[in-house]
Design a binder for these strands. Sequence first.
DNA 1: GGAATTGATTGACGTCTGTCGATGGAAAGC
DNA 2: GCTTTCCATCGACAGACGTCAATCAATTCC
Lengths: 112, 112
Amino acid sequence: MRAPVQERVKGVCCPPSIPLPLAKVDASVEVLKALADPTRLQMMGILRRSPKAVCICDFTAAFALSQPTISHHMAKLREAGLVEATKVGIWAYYRLSARLDSKTRALLDVLV
Amino acid sequence: MRAPVQERVKGVCCPPSIPLPLAKVDASVEVLKALADPTRLQMMGILRRSPKAVCICDFTAAFALSQPTISHHMAKLREAGLVEATKVGIWAYYRLSARLDSKTRALLDVLV
DNA sequence: GGAATTGATTGACGTCTGTCGATGGAAAGC
DNA sequence: GCTTTCCATCGACAGACGTCAATCAATTCC
């Protein structure tokens, strides 16, 4: 008869634990949602490895997805503040955002 | 008239870049999806800080969500291999999985 | 000016997700 | 045995998400 993990009285639950700061959680969730898709995670991997900004047309060629879908995914990454776009003539070039905070950088180091 | 980001010929796109290993991406996405929810991220934060396993009823008390929803979220974390459950009498206790790989640990260090 | 190309946007579709109420099963107390 | 408590599962529902075809705006080339 070993001791239980914690003292418990039936019908009596502990007071709620101290949660993380709500703003921090929401910011993290926004980044996590942006990364939680295979296509977008691979896009981030490609961008992190590329010394130059990458043309959208290259992503369209790399993934077996329609051009609007590629554009949609890149927009998600842009809205999350993960990438930046530059227009050169007809072409649109994307690179990792220059102002990624240290936590996001650490995430990318682990993931891609 | 500065040099463009990359040489481009109209109508000609570069060959696709080398993507990350597909299996790695899918595994990462599974974990990211499990973490990309405010409730689940906070659950992970609580579990990571708690030296003891935490009773489900404490989560039910901590979050303004119904008991089935709490159970649903914990099941998601369990399916992703992030947490483990122990049944003690009527109560169910959860803790961080003992066999988290180093990348997942690093993720949690950054996030929660 | 007109044709061609890139890429963003729109609208539509099926699927996945977060949430709840209701139900069910197991353990503990009466 | 019956009731109570905890928790997982089921069924339902609204909203978000990933995808595509069609369209549009901007640019370049003829």
